[in-house]
Structure formats: structure tokens, C-alpha cells
């Protein structure tokens, strides 16, 4: 990501254009089969397919709650980045999840997240996971993200 002030595209536009690359750039997300489906400014959508290896209770085939945690964490973090005027990495400060109902065995889970407020240092986000519509929720999340100062990739390696 460049910090070029003359660049005409907003971060969310670049992110949406490279949506497959962004989905593929998260090894644990890739292993879960997770992908982003749409990115707008401060609002992202994604898909988490059902997979045998992600099951939390073999008697019911229900996907483990921890998969939803990772799913909604991915969506919230990306919603935060997409809300910013310049390209920045964000780090999860905290994440709260409420589990309303178990996800159905064998069905894709749809998720969306929005970044509803941004301060100098923090992005505030919320997210929803469901099968068909937000009327019948599987889980909701609320997360705060710290906006990282711009720095080179090399300096981040030594963190």
C-alpha cells in the first residue's frame, strides 16, 4: 500500500478491486474457506462456507463458535481499514461476540460489518452473521480497532 497523497482512488476502492487478493492474503482465513464478497467505504460483506474441519460438535455438525469469531474479526478489521481516507493497517483491540443461534450444518454463513465511527486512533465496528437475512441472526459482534501509524513492512517485521 502506498501513502501517495496524489493517488486518486480511496483505500476502499483499491481494496474492492483487489478483493480476491485480500481474501487470499490471510492464511487462516484461506484455511477456513473465508472470502470477502464486497467492499465499500466502511462496509464489507463476506462468506464463510461450512466445512467438516471447522465443526465444534461432531454430534450436530454445527460449526464452532471460534470460526465465527475469526470470520467477524476479518470483516470488522476490513470494514475499519475501508473507512479510512489513507491506507492503514488496523489491529484488533477487543472483540465482543453474541451467539444467537447455531449455524445450520452444511450451509454458507453470510456476514457483514460496518465501521460506524472513526477517531484519530480508533475505529469502532459492528458485524452480523446470518444465513438469509439479518432478521434471523446467528451471531453479532462489536469490535474496536487501533489504527497503526504508517511504517515500512521491514520495521513491522521486528515488532
Amino acid at each position: 500500500m502506498s501513502d501517495d497523497a496524489t493517488s486518486s482512488s480511496a483505500p476502499w476502492e483499491v481494496m474492492n478491486e483487489n478483493i480476491e487478493m485480500i481474501s487470499g492474503g490471510i492464511p487462516w482465513g484461506r484455511r477456513m474457506g473465508f472470502r470477502f464478497t464486497r467492499i465499500e467505504k466502511g462496509h464489507v460483506w463476506g462468506l464463510q462456507p461450512w466445512k467438516e474441519r471447522l465443526v465444534g460438535d461432531p454430534d450436530t455438525g454445527v460449526i464452532h463458535g471460534g470460526v465465527l469469531t475469526a470470520f467477524l474479526d476479518n470483516l470488522c478489521g476490513t470494514a475499519a481499514s475501508s473507512a479510512l481516507p489513507k491506507p492503514r493497517f488496523v489491529a484488533t483491540l477487543d472483540l465482543r461476540l453474541d451467539y444467537m443461534r447455531p449455524a445450520d450444518k452444511g450451509r454458507d454463513i453470510i456476514g457483514e460489518a460496518e465501521c460506524y465511527h472513526v477517531t484519530r486512533n480508533i475505529c469502532f465496528t459492528r458485524a452480523w452473521a446470518y444465513h438469509e437475512s439479518r432478521d434471523k441472526m446467528i451471531a453479532t459482534a462489536a469490535g474496536a480497532f487501533a489504527i497503526n501509524k504508517p511504517r515500512s513492512v521491514d520495521s513491522m517485521r521486528t515488532m
Binding site: 490471510i26 492464511p27 487462516w28 482465513g29 464452532h64 463458535g65 471460534g66 470460526v67 469469531t69 475469526a70 470470520f71 474479526d73 476479518n74 484488533t92 472483540l95
Partner: peptide
Amino acid sequence: IHGGAIGA
């Protein structure tokens, strides 16, 4: 390590 993986 992925924050979601640590959460799980």
C-alpha cells in the same frame, strides 16, 4: 497468528 484463531 490470526486473532480469530487465538479467540477460537
